[in-house]
Design a protein around this nucleic acid. Structure first.
Lengths: 158, 158
DNA sequence: CCCACTTATTTCAAACCTAAAATATTTTTG
DNA sequence: CAAAAATATTTTAGGTTTGAAATAAGTGGG
């Protein structure tokens, strides 16, 4: 706590991690902004909509609303609005869950699957261009570290 | 375009980059969510407010509104509202700019500086805990790569 | 059965965010 | 110098996002 103490090894590690986070955040926001822009121009859609469809495309049985908000790490109320609009557009359906009238199973419609396939292909190529500086090995390595980070963050919370 | 072609080396690199981006985004959202939560509970504040104060703390002369929105990469109108509330709370002041009655210089008050110092210290320690798995060298290395990524993204846009 | 508790979802208020229009001021130019 | 252009900011309209409260439905102990 004393400002007169010599800088400890831990201090510089802490600074390096803070710096990492700031870079991380800035990069993530830049990439996100670019994707948002592309989605809007090429598909008249938004990132939250894409995220919902992407999550559902990985679960062919669909997901309940609360599972969706868990997977996407956004609030329940937020998912309600996004799903509402995707249902209006005919990309999603809400299916009643047998024996539980509180819950809905949300699924991609056939039309939704087709639409998402087109968006996902474009999305992959945007990312491939933007992250071109990362070679395959580097990309894989960093992805694994981030997965570990994610796991440890989740454990810490419980 | 043929689905019968053998998988090219480029394809797997593209997949690896996509995977990297998805991990990246998820990690970034988890960390952000945690920080938001901490700011709310410990300082009754939000991430946008923290960002504004952080930007101003790096410029002791203060920043003009347009400089703030440039630095934070958010819209002008957005900054107006956040600054309004921080001024109400006594953390910021708008100072008239000599010879230009259109512009304001926004600065931390003494109280704002104190408040931000406390928040920044807490923030650094949250990050230090959350990113504890990254050693100092790794953190520094990845930060540099992200800085390069950021630069190349900005160049691409122009 | 019934009361309390939990779970699933929606609604709500407030803050955030953007792009575009409006306002006020300064600078440039014919 | 006056009109036009540029600059700095705020206002406005329309969404997005969050946390918390409200609603609705299931579960379980007594």
């Amino acid at each position: 706590m004393s400002e007169h103490a010599a800088t400890l090894p831990e201090d510089s590690a802490s600074k390096a991690r803070l710096r990492l986070w700031l870079r991380f955040l800035k990069a993530s926001r830049s990439i996100e902004a670019q994707i948002r822009d592309n989605l809007r121009r090429e598909f008249a859609s938004t990132l939250p909509r894409f995220d919902v469809m992407a999550a559902l495309s990985r679960y062919s049985d669909g997901l309940k609303m609360s599972q969706l908000s868990e997977v996407l790490r956004v609030s329940n109320g937020n998912v309600t609005g996004i799903v509402d609009r995707l249902v209006e557009d005919g990309f999603l359906v809400r299916v009643a869950v047998p024996n539980d009238r509180r819950a809905w199973q949300v699924r991609l419609t056939e039309r939704g699957e087709k639409e998402f396939a087109a968006q996902a292909a474009a999305h992959e190529s945007w990312i491939n261009e933007m992250l071109g500086e990362f070679g395959e090995k580097d990309a894989a390595n960093i992805a694994i570290r981030l997965e570990q980070l994610e796991t440890s963050l989740r454990e810490r919370k419980q």
